[in-house]
Design a protein around this nucleic acid. Structure first.
Lengths: 190, 190
DNA sequence: CGTCTATTTGAATGTACTCAAAAGCGGTGG
DNA sequence: CCACCGCTTTTGAGTACATTCAAATAGACG
């Protein structure tokens, strides 16, 4: 069962009883996204968060010149959402779509908050992974500010070797904040 | 009382009883930092988080060439910490110091976690402000990737007019990810 | 095999940096 | 009150990193 992946993920941080597992399970929806299909589109109320159990999704911002800037990739065992829309209820500014055929477990913000009331353990779990998320994006921001593109790419390969194999170069470039042409030059020289 | 500022901050998100307030109060330490003095230094175990009640602090990373990159400013009513060290217990990679004479309320990670056990409301509060923190830093990362320096500066002025008045140009430049010389050129018509 | 997309390569360009020097500003002591 | 010191800001010329645009090549997929 794909939900076991989520249970395992949660149990890295807190311990769950069978009852809590089934409670959580009741609050989730399973959904598949075919390659290129959207989970979230800019302008929508994106009140769902997705836990990927198979495949790969990405969240990205399209700037005023039409360029895409990727905030996050989510392969198996990762959560992805437009946190702004999800937590505040405002219109999403991000798009989230599937880079591969993808299976995910969805939870609505409403259900998530209910879950927190019924069982504060889950609030602890999300507090912890949100803390981890902050640390990770802070690191990324500092890397972007302090390193040149070839170094950022080297770090990316080191940190996410699987993504480097699995994703097309355009996507990696849009994550690193450089053009695909320049990434090509980095790969084939320095 | 300076702790009232914190209570007000918390009560934007959850409701506190007097008992809970005094409980929180017992877990906090009041501390002052003179201008240029450190709250956290790279290499330390930075197991305290600070809520600034007066003055201004900054967290920053010093890269291998000795350049400072500012992650966050914290004036009155803001929390600041090396989240990585605070949450994982590892050695800090950031420095945090006072840009002005500063007063802050400190909470140790240990006490914070105790507080969560005694009263899950506080875990909710920190879950919420951590969510808000993610949204804010995600926006900043996307701005850095999609905007030119003059636009980033314009947004900074619009978003933090007080900081723009209150901070020296070198600090703002180190936050925006540009050199002080270039910020000078932007300000004087660029 | 043909079409569509992704990648490679190169020349010209742009954004921001480096380095250096000058000018402004604030605090301190004479 | 003025003179000096240290620090920040300004300004300019030359340079580095990365982009843009265009065209050629390679891959993927029906």
């Amino acid at each position: 069962m794909s939900i076991d992946l989520l249970f395992q993920n949660i149990e890295k941080h807190i311990v769950l009883t069978d009852k809590e597992k089934s409670m959580l399970s009741d609050f989730l929806e399973e959904k598949t996204f075919r390659k290129r299909h959207y989970f979230v589109q800019e302008g929508q109320y994106a009140n769902y968060s997705a836990f990927v159990t198979k495949g790969c999704m990405r969240s990205y911002y399209v700037d005023t010149n039409g360029f895409e800037h990727i905030l996050q990739f989510a392969i198996e065992d990762w959560w992805i959402a437009d946190m702004m829309s999800y937590t505040t209820g405002k219109e999403a500014r991000l798009n989230i779509d599937a880079l591969e055929n993808t299976e995910a477990l969805l939870i609505s913000r409403e259900n998530q908050l209910k879950l927190f009331e019924v069982c504060p353990k889950f609030e602890k779990y999300f507090r912890i992974i949100t803390e981890n998320g902050i640390v990770s994006i802070q690191n990324r921001l500092l890397e972007n500010m302090s390193l040149l593109a070839p170094e950022r790419y080297a770090n990316f390969v080191k940190k996410y070797p699987i993504l480097n194999q699995r994703l097309p170069q355009t996507q990696i470039a849009a994550f690193l904040g450089i053009t695909p042409e320049f990434l090509s030059k980095i790969r084939n020289r320095g």
